[in-house]
C-alpha cells in the first residue's frame, strides 16, 4: 500500500506534530520504507496466537489506596515553562 503525503499529514495531526512542507516528501519516503519493512509480518501465521503485551504476561500490581506523598507543587512547577499562582498557564482556550 503506497503512502502519500496526505496520509503522513493526517498521522502527524493525530500525533500533534507539524511537518515542514519542504520536508514532507522526505518524511513520506522514510515513513513508507518503514511500513514496507514492518509489512514482513504479514507472512507470519499468527492464527490463534494470543497477543503478548508484557514479557512475563504479568498483571499490574495495585497498591493500597493511601496517600503516600506530600504536596510538592512548588518543586514540581519549578520545571514548568509558564506558571502563575500555582497554576500551569496555557493559551486562551475559550473566547
Amino acid at each position: 500500500m503506497p503512502t502519500i503525503p496526505a496520509d503522513v499529514l493526517s498521522v502527524a495531526q493525530l500525533a500533534r506534530l507539524r511537518i515542514d512542507e519542504t520536508a514532507l516528501d522526505d518524511v513520506t519516503d522514510r515513513f513508507s520504507r518503514t511500513l514496507e519493512l514492518v509489512a514482513q509480518l504479514e507472512e507470519v501465521d499468527t492464527e490463534g496466537v494470543t497477543p503478548m503485551s508484557n514479557p512475563h504476561d504479568m498483571h499490574q500490581r495495585l497498591r493500597a489506596d493511601m496517600v503516600t506523598e506530600s504536596n510538592q507543587r512548588e518543586a514540581l512547577q519549578k520545571t514548568a515553562p509558564a506558571v502563575a499562582d500555582g497554576f500551569f498557564l496555557v493559551p486562551k482556550v475559550i473566547d
Partner: peptide, 10 residues
C-alpha cells in the same frame, strides 16, 4: 499482529 509475533519470538 506485532504482539502476536512477539509471543512467537518468546
Amino acid at each position: 499482529k506485532a504482539q502476536q509475533v512477539r509471543r512467537l519470538i518468546s
